[in-house]
Design a binder for these strands. Sequence first.
DNA 1: TTGCATAGTTTGCGACACAAACCTATTGGT
DNA 2: ACCAATAGGTTTGTGTCGCAAACTATGCAA
Lengths: 110, 110
Amino acid sequence: MRAFPIDAKAVASLDRLLHEPARLSIVACLAVVDEADFVFLQAQTGMTGGNLSSHVKKLEQAGYITTSKEFQGSKPRTSFALTDEGREAFTGYLTSMRSLLGVLDGHASK
Amino acid sequence: MRAFPIDAKAVASLDRLLHEPARLSIVACLAVVDEADFVFLQAQTGMTGGNLSSHVKKLEQAGYITTSKEFQGSKPRTSFALTDEGREAFTGYLTSMRSLLGVLDGHASK
DNA sequence: TTGCATAGTTTGCGACACAAACCTATTGGT
DNA sequence: ACCAATAGGTTTGTGTCGCAAACTATGCAA
């Protein structure tokens, strides 16, 4: 007897912090560019400043990203980067998602 | 100049109803077996009855699944199945997720 | 100095996920 | 027949969360 193909526990254990689309976008951006500032992320994601602010705060509190406020001349610039932990969590998330999708091949469309 | 690879709008427009892991598990199960009853889904997903009940209600209200209560002898049995609309939404979700994952190949792990 | 723009944070609110409590019906024990 | 216990679901309550509006602070232009 074949095991049931959907591993619901695996789905349920997806990292909720990364599963949120807003934060997934942020982390995906940072995975690609390695460093990005607030303004860039806001433009890329189309989020309001407040929303972006609260999400990066959560990512930082989780240890997934670092925040650095530096000055360029007289202008402050807040930039973000993935930590090793963040990248690891992200790749883990992608792996879980990939395996879920893999299992569903051929089932989703009859 | 290459376009930025992450399409945050696409990520943000993921169907929130399906994006929720609990409901994703339910719909994934139904995509595989075509019909399942309450008890089976509860066992598969490991959810409490209350939680499962509220999620299937939402899926039904969205038109993604149908609920049918039949009697087997004297025992009631509530079973669920994907509607065409539900299957369509599900395949759409999978397609979006796949394209996101595709874009990230080679970026996630440096 | 006054007004506007940029950069970001805090506050408030509506929606949501989850489990506990509840409801109803059936089965088993005596 | 009666009571307890179990099974199948639903409703209620609560803490959390995502989001945008409002606010703060700084810089620049006239």
